[in-house]
Simulated assay, not measured.
Amino acid sequence: MASTSGLRSPPPPRSDAASPRPKFDSELLKAYMKKLLSSTLQNNSWPDQKERERVKEWIHEIGARVKERMVEIQPRGFKYIVFTQINENLGQGGRADLSLHWEDTDVVAQEMYSNDTLICICIAFAIA
């Protein structure tokens, strides 16, 4: 509902009661993602035009392995979404921020890796 100033009213406070849903360990996933991005990309550079399929392969591999790890951490009770993006590093700035506000048990984990020639952002959602 809008207030007289045109801004929305704050949402009602959430209950302090513990949720019966399982909690996803996002810190465990973040540590895995950090190691995975580094080990997958550290010895690679942005490919020439003829080899651009390699970028698609890296994206697919990272996304699949993150999802597999998410299922290992919490095999039931969540839907998983993994977004991976790799761009050429031309010295540009960049930032990616996400938050979610559905249930107390939902989490988002984000990691970024960069070297002299490429930038990778991987974002994973676990939604109860």
Results as ranks from 00 to 15, higher is better:
residue 1 M to N: 08
residue 1 M to I: 07
residue 3 S to E: 14
residue 3 S to I: 02
residue 6 G to C: 07
residue 10 P to Y: 09
residue 10 P to W: 03
residue 11 P to S: 13
residue 12 P to F: 04
residue 12 P to N: 09
residue 13 P to M: 07
residue 14 R to H: 04
residue 15 S to K: 07
residue 16 D to I: 00
residue 16 D to V: 01
residue 18 A to C: 04
residue 19 S to C: 07
residue 19 S to H: 02
residue 19 S to F: 02
residue 21 R to S: 14
residue 22 P to D: 12
residue 27 E to R: 02
residue 28 L to R: 11
residue 28 L to S: 12
residue 28 L to C: 10
residue 28 L to M: 12
residue 29 L to Q: 10
residue 30 K to Q: 14
residue 31 A to T: 09
residue 31 A to G: 08
residue 31 A to M: 03
residue 31 A to S: 14
residue 35 K to V: 10
residue 36 L to Y: 04
residue 39 S to E: 12
residue 39 S to N: 13
residue 39 S to M: 06
residue 40 T to A: 15
residue 40 T to Q: 14
residue 41 L to E: 02
residue 42 Q to A: 10
residue 43 N to E: 07
residue 43 N to T: 09
residue 43 N to I: 01
residue 44 N to C: 12
residue 47 P to M: 08
residue 47 P to D: 07
residue 47 P to C: 09
residue 47 P to S: 04
residue 48 D to M: 04
residue 48 D to Q: 08
residue 48 D to E: 12
residue 50 K to W: 04
residue 51 E to Y: 03
residue 52 R to G: 02
residue 53 E to R: 01
residue 56 K to Q: 11
residue 56 K to F: 10
residue 58 W to T: 01
residue 58 W to K: 05
residue 58 W to H: 07
residue 59 I to E: 12
residue 59 I to Q: 13
residue 61 E to K: 14
residue 61 E to R: 13
residue 61 E to T: 08
residue 61 E to H: 13
residue 62 I to E: 02
residue 62 I to Q: 05
residue 63 G to Y: 02
residue 63 G to L: 01
residue 64 A to C: 06
residue 65 R to Q: 15
residue 66 V to L: 03
residue 69 R to L: 06
residue 70 M to S: 12
residue 71 V to R: 10
residue 71 V to S: 03
residue 72 E to I: 09
residue 75 P to Y: 05
residue 76 R to D: 15
residue 76 R to Q: 14
residue 76 R to G: 04
residue 77 G to C: 05
residue 78 F to R: 04
residue 78 F to N: 09
residue 79 K to D: 13
residue 79 K to T: 09
residue 80 Y to G: 05
residue 81 I to P: 00
residue 81 I to Q: 00
residue 81 I to Y: 00
residue 82 V to N: 00
residue 83 F to T: 01
residue 83 F to C: 01
residue 84 T to V: 15
residue 84 T to L: 04
residue 84 T to K: 02
residue 85 Q to M: 11
residue 85 Q to G: 12
residue 85 Q to S: 15
residue 87 N to A: 09
residue 87 N to Y: 03
residue 88 E to S: 11
residue 90 L to K: 15
residue 91 G to V: 03
residue 92 Q to D: 11
residue 92 Q to A: 09
residue 94 G to M: 14
residue 94 G to L: 13
residue 94 G to W: 12
residue 95 R to F: 05
residue 96 A to N: 05
residue 97 D to M: 13
residue 99 S to N: 06
residue 100 L to N: 09
residue 101 H to I: 00
residue 102 W to I: 07
residue 105 T to L: 03
residue 106 D to G: 05
residue 106 D to S: 09
residue 108 V to T: 12
residue 108 V to Y: 08
residue 110 Q to P: 00
residue 110 Q to G: 01
residue 111 E to C: 15
residue 112 M to C: 14
residue 112 M to N: 05
residue 113 Y to K: 06
residue 114 S to M: 10
residue 114 S to Q: 14
residue 115 N to F: 05
residue 115 N to V: 08
residue 117 T to N: 10
residue 118 L to M: 15
residue 119 I to M: 11
residue 120 C to G: 06
residue 122 C to L: 12
residue 123 I to D: 00
residue 123 I to G: 01
residue 123 I to W: 00
residue 126 A to I: 03
residue 126 A to P: 01
residue 127 I to F: 13
residue 128 A to V: 05
residue 128 A to Q: 11
residue 128 A to R: 02
residue 128 A to M: 03
